[in-house]
Design a binder for these strands. Structure first.
Lengths: 201, 201, 201, 201
DNA sequence: CATGAATGAGGGTTCATTCAT
DNA sequence: TATGAATGAACCCTCATTCAT
């Protein structure tokens, strides 16, 4: 009867986690607008009001999910990058690890567009912040690679942007009309475009 | 009293065009769902009911805009492609012409994502049709180029998809956080990724 | 070129009549609310604005049609009633003549209910006026018949009302779920209820 | 604090009942189309959205009210009819009980016409169902009475229809222009028309 | 005078958010 | 604290009426 009694048999349910997971799932599946708070509550198996004890608004709920995704990406990147190694080496190793979280990244992509369409300025700003983290890392790495003459002279910001978009296209956008690509296929095509170019040598 | 008389005073307002332009602008700026018919009416400077004299539903209005964009693209492609010339030649010539209509293509991109999230099956089908036109052309050209050994062996469908996404990224998505790129910049980066690759030779 | 010229070949179209006929048809077929001015204009083969040169509002158009119906009824009654003859004789003769205009009376019935539901006070008052004309006549006749001991003592107003409703039921309301009754069937049932009663003698 | 404590202060409001009553009132007073959900909400003293927690659409709200009315009628009929007794005996006993629910029956009548004019096919089907229940009962009874030679030979379906319409006319339609009739008056007139006939014997 | 394109008030419905329990 | 019934602003669409031509 006393949930806080010693030896509590039933571990208290982490309602916030339930909500976050349900929301992630629903946003991922149906998009931002099409996800109703009722739906999230039902999936999370909590009362609708409960959501509002953790998050002030639907938008804030969305933002927190987004931040989670990006912080995971950041951790991966920091773990995998080793400046002793060459650019493409790092790139493909990071890519490899990132692809483990593909499904979550899919969400990020799916929503980034939508948030721009619907979100309040706050939300849009949040989204921009998220992308910046990734783009900033890429930019830094690209600049470093140019400096060490590992890749051609180029506008590092644009190149970073294209690299990011390419990753997004292969891991997420492609799936909307086709079977998902294998990890292998994704890596090969990244290599084809980024490293070698299409033209026969 | 005679409208065709010399010095025609007030040119008659083309309300349908006004509506189409207003809708294009609003869809482009705020997305599909976030664009209300009230808003379109206000921007177009017409009564809300007026819109419904030209278009049965909001969705139909959207579809018509989309179809306009795609038919323009198609015309450009058909005009510019010349199989006597080599792949990259054609590619950059088409690209060059397409870039003239950049702002309209921006709309297309912006909406493609959203439509998938929200649209009715009809709308989604419309969007898929739009993209197919482009992707089909690209696929055909890529296959042709592989056959003539102008580009490396590769999965033409995936490569086409990436080419398309790259175009979209450079002409539209980039603008959300930066100043639009110049025609030159766009072409250079397409060349960098598609033709040469990033790696120093 | 001069429509009023002598020997005008093409008789000028009576637009008002066209409108009245079209409106009668549409009201009759679809009811008051479901009849749009667009529809009336189309059926009448005139511009929508033209209707408003004859009638200030949709309601006024409806009222005029109603008045036409009632004035026809009135004429019939006045022509057929002959106080030299007995009550039931007059009743069936009037009935017989009224049934010639059944289709128009159907309209009246159909609308009477609806007008009460939707109409402005003015419209409702118009409808009441229409019914009063008939009910007043019936009341007068019933009273006369009671006085001459042709029918039983009864509340003439209620009896008149029931007679009217019975006529309406047989000529109009029945048709909504069944094949229309023949003139004969209608007369027989009026006789059954009004003259003889159902009970076996 | 304890709702079940003695002297329960505020009885909990049954919002669904409030809505049903408000809707019944408004439908009854203004008809189906002229009743807006805003109005129902205002009369029921609830938010507009509240209605939609109980009923999916305006039509469903209407249907539920209708079904309630008809199921009440059915119960009465089943309770009062006793085939040991003669036709007119049963008729007047059922009538007597039905008249207790006069105000609800008024609604039914008022709407039956309108629904035919405006309703969706579903609604119309609902209305037909309602009337069928009554007409079927009447038809069966009339047939039975003819067989037992309690009433004259006649088309039982038409006679049933007229009986129904007469009931409607006396309990509902009369009230639109006059003071409601007393139970007594209604019964007397039913007897006059159905049993005895108007003609002096 | 005849026209029909233009209008905008008003309708049913959805859903993020609140708050009494 | 957790709940979900209640809320109402905001959406898309209809149609009687107006008015420039």
């Amino acid at each position: 009867m006393d949930k806080r009694g010693e030896g509590r048999i039933i571990p208290p349910v982490d309602r916030k986690k339930q909500v976050l997971e349900a929301a992630t799932q629903s946003f991922s599946l149906f998009g931002y607008k099409a996800t109703t708070m009722d739906q999230v509550a039902k999936i999370a198996n909590v009362g609708k009001g409960t959501i509002y004890t953790f998050f002030d608004t639907k938008e804030q709920l969305f933002d927190e999910i987004l931040l989670d995704v990006i912080s995971e990406m950041k951790k991966i990147i920091e773990r995998e990058v080793d400046h002793q190694k060459v650019f493409f080496d790092n790139l493909f190793r990071v890519l490899d690890s990132l692809l483990e979280f593909r499904s979550e990244h899919e969400l990020l992509v799916k929503l980034s567009q939508e948030v721009r369409d619907f979100g309040t300025p706050q939300s849009q700003e949040a989204m921009t912040r998220v992308e910046s983290v990734i783009l900033n890392y890429l930019d830094k790495e690209v600049k470093h690679a140019i400096l060490h003459q590992e890749i051609r002279e180029c506008d590092s910001e644009i190149v970073s942007f294209l690299m990011f978009k390419m990753y997004i296209a292969l891991t997420s956008e492609w799936n909307k009309i086709h079977e998902p690509l294998s990890k292998q296929q994704i890596q090969e095509h990244i290599r084809l475009f980024l490293e070698e170019g299409l033209a026969v040598q």
